[in-house]
Write a protein that binds this DNA or RNA. Sequence first.
DNA 1: TTGTATGCGTTATCAT
DNA 2: ATGATAACGCATACAA
Lengths: 338, 338
Amino acid sequence: MLGQLMPVTIKEIAEIAGVCHSTVSRALHGNEMINAGTRAKIKRLADEMGYVPSAVALSLRSQKTLTVGIVVTSINDPFFGRIVEGIENVARAANYSTFLSTSGFGEVGEREVVQSFYRRRVDAIIISSLWGDLTLGEEFERIKIPIVLINNQTEGKYLHSVAVDDVRGGEVATRHLLELGHRRISYLETKNRWKSNRLRREGYEKAHRAASVPLDPKLVIPPLADDDVSRGEKALEQLLEAKATAVFCYNDMTAIGLMNACRAARVRVPQDISIVGYDDVELTNHVTPALTTMHQPRRQLGQQAMEMTLALLAGEDSVPDQVLDSRLVVRASTASPA
Amino acid sequence: MLGQLMPVTIKEIAEIAGVCHSTVSRALHGNEMINAGTRAKIKRLADEMGYVPSAVALSLRSQKTLTVGIVVTSINDPFFGRIVEGIENVARAANYSTFLSTSGFGEVGEREVVQSFYRRRVDAIIISSLWGDLTLGEEFERIKIPIVLINNQTEGKYLHSVAVDDVRGGEVATRHLLELGHRRISYLETKNRWKSNRLRREGYEKAHRAASVPLDPKLVIPPLADDDVSRGEKALEQLLEAKATAVFCYNDMTAIGLMNACRAARVRVPQDISIVGYDDVELTNHVTPALTTMHQPRRQLGQQAMEMTLALLAGEDSVPDQVLDSRLVVRASTASPA
DNA sequence: TTGTATGCGTTATCAT
DNA sequence: ATGATAACGCATACAA
């Protein structure tokens, strides 16, 4: 049906113009000394014929593709949407294109994706999805291109990263509850992002120590489900048993699940229990009551990651890891205990 | 093992193996008659050296890049997330990679993106973002590759498309309200997607005619803001003036904006006013009351689009446009009028 | 069975 | 000022 009519090449332009293809190349590039007449003629011709240079050929020759691969666990997750947006904006402004790929949660998916990016000869890779301290290390060892991790979950030091200070985040969130007067504050853990989970819990503990409020292990609720929302929904019972008056949740979706459970059980938020989330997903503004949460600068996370990538690509010697700050957004889901 | 700066090429393997590079190529491809010994040796060598073929070189030679470009207005919009996910899954299974790019809402962004994809020599383009009946037509005219539109907003017939039946969707949503006993039902319009807006309104009118309920032009509320949510928030006053007892909103985000306004004004949903959204974004399940809405099979939309693309790429003669059905999801935001 | 040569589209280094 | 030629990495038609 669609006759794959081939794109115009400089060779074809050259033929019609009655010159050599290298002349066309020069004319189009402009920066050579070339007869003004032929240059004009060739430019006009190229325009008429709808010439668009082949990035493929350019890539082969220059050994640079001007592409970066992005891997996220799920493109649907509202958390990643803004990150990708941030990356894409900076990338586009720098004439880079982005390959997007999802890895799911398994390590296998990640290897596959990285492998595929390597075949494509992307100039760099930005990853916002590491599942654990996987063996992807070897993979990276061989692939000598810049790799930037966003909120990375590994300890490897050979990689560049931009992240939010999770310890501080957990600390600020918890302090907010302490300052409201809460003394029995729960932390609701997650399953699949063990590092940031640990850091936020560290912050949670740190805040308690700073306020000289004793920690009760019973108040740390381990993950009861895979899915973020269900995890929150299933936690209510344990929270009540532990007599918590406030909860700091690993992320917003878990907090929202918990809120659902509270509504169903006629537990009032924030009168009976205060809830703090993490991420500040759009959603948090639209639930009832609006959720108090730690705002993560997600768009900026993506932008910084891409800017670091560009710096690395430009061969800059020292591209320091970035640590961004999250900030508390107080809404309606937290209050002083009864 | 030995990580070198540049990726390994068949030439390098050939040198070490003491054979010609074409022999390596054949050995790696397997389907040629070749000495079993040398094949094994070469394969082992390639493995040891960490050889990964260059997709760039392959593309140049084969004139196929095994890539498709995706353009959406915003990657952050929950509506597009699932669509992209659907595309990506099918694409990856078929060994295609996806370039992702956002166009914003202007036509300029779209041209730019399509242009960039063309330079990259993508094999096809999937667009889920057309702003109007833009002049992108010429652009497509020249680019002789398959283009698949998702929920397209243009009338061009030279393009392929997969869409949800908006007329029927509007009709079903409205009928639901009519069946609940409502007689003054508003339609809340949108701004930047005039075609589907028109179609949903058509469905809205059709349902009224089918039920012999007179239409009141005052009940159709034109867009009062650019942003989806604000549009909903600003509409309440006019709704009350028009004495509407129910509202069919162009999409979920607008419906949620309206719900916010209702809460602020102490207008009870659904007791005082029933609200129906459109899209069934995740969010709708988590607002209070949970939103009744038209479910769009977004993931399937993406999958179908990519499958159509693959069919077109495979040279299939007739690849019919797809029209998917949306279905009503009744939740808590609708009830019979007082 | 394997080596040689060619071309994909482009830029760059030679010549002329 | 411009033409000829090589090179980027790979697959393949043709020769041996």
